[in-house]
Write a protein that binds this DNA or RNA. Structure first.
Ligand SMILES: [Mn+2]
Ligand SMILES: [Mn+2]
Ligand SMILES: [Zn+2]
Ligand SMILES: [Zn+2]
Lengths: 140, 140
DNA sequence: ACATACTTTAGAATAATTATAAAGTAGTTA
DNA sequence: TAACTACTTTATAATTATTCTAAAGTATGT
């Protein structure tokens, strides 16, 4: 078992609160995802490629999927579908919106969009969340 | 070749304007999609199942995909991704929004949602469209 | 160390979609 | 209408994203 220095505690805690033991692979994934200044968006395939690029011993696809799903279920990641029907994960778990610009996804802070009018939920239902996608195209 | 009565003209025109010759299979698909009072949402698999159910000679999967894609490209259908990453097509091609209610998709007329504030597009870009998804959950 | 439980992984299996290429059909010409 | 050509349909293979399985590996408690 690895010697864990205290500076990894926050990444380990995200795993523990997702019901995952902090194994080496998982801690590396958690650090890769959350040890940064800015949040970002990624697909599992992108995550796997960029993390495995620098590694001698590759982390398996299943471990990436399992870990990402657990983090997502615990609320440490948000998930949405890209236009090509693949899952995109977001380390920004605050409520916010997106620009879709030809495959590129850009955050829109929640307070940049406000509503004048919103429909009521059908009876028996209530609103869980409201998400806006603004699709962009090139000028002219 | 089939004898086309005039009442199919509108469905045939949608095919022609999509760059497709109005073959029997295509006309049947076009009628199935557009010969109704209310618009609806469907996946290719659902379309195939429901149309082939009543047929002796089945229309092939490829023909469904090809026809739906051509209609979509010509603007006769809109496409969006469901949460399980499959394509959902919409015969309502007006600009509008959706409730997502556990896999069920419900239209929200465009005028039911208005914005108080919307962000500007990044420089060099402009807004192509704005789509809102309101996710629902059960009350209580 | 032993036993037990959890983890990792390669590879198989699924599901949605796209590509291929042969056989069928329609449109045009002679 | 026969022949020619172009477009269509379809079965089937291929791809891609994702999930499942089962065996081998690793950690934890005693
Ligand atoms: Mn998933
Ligand atoms: Mn498609
Ligand atoms: Zn985001
Ligand atoms: Zn709709």
């Amino acid at each position: 078992m690895t010697k864990m220095n205290n500076k990894n505690k926050i990444f380990i805690d995200k795993l523990r609160s997702s019901g995952l033991r902090p194994t080496n692979q998982r801690v590396e994934i958690s650090k890769f995802l959350f040890n940064r200044k800015k949040t970002f968006h990624f697909t599992v395939e992108e995550l796997k490629s960029s993390m495995n690029l620098k590694r001698q011993k590759k982390i398996s696809t299943a471990t990436f999927y399992n870990t990402v799903h657990a983090l997502k279920s615990a609320g440490h990641l948000k998930e949405f579908s890209l236009e090509n029907n693949t899952s995109c994960y977001d380390t920004n778990i605050t409520s916010h919106h997106h620009f879709f610009d030809n495959g590129k996804v850009i955050d829109i802070k929640s307070d940049k969009i406000t509503f004048q009018k919103l429909p009521e939920a059908p009876k028996g239902k209530k609103i869980k969340n409201v998400e806006v996608v603004i699709r962009l195209e090139n000028n002219n």
